[in-house]
Amino acid sequence: MKQCIACGMPMKNPEDFAMGDSAKEYCRYCSRPDGTMQSYDEKLNSLTTFIIKTQGLEEKAANLAAKSMMTKLPAWKRQSPI
């Protein structure tokens, strides 16, 4: 199964992909409304928000976890600064 290069989510069904296009390497959560992939900062922001929303953690801890996760993903491997 394909995995989103930007967040690691497994993509099985067409609707999991950006714009429902299973040729894409990234998922619907990692795409902008026009179908292009979010930038590093946009993804870091949305992942941080995701962690806060799902666990209620404070922003600092959520941001660290999001950054750390992004270093492991193909889309961000080179640019993650930590």
Partner: peptide
């Protein structure tokens, strides 16, 4: 190590997301 905590946090969020 911090890396373990960060991984742990992502797992908990993913579980919470599915439950949500």
């Amino acid at each position: 190590p911090a890396n373990v905590t960060n991984t742990y946090v992502m797992i908990q969020s993913t579980i919470s997301f599915h439950i949500g």
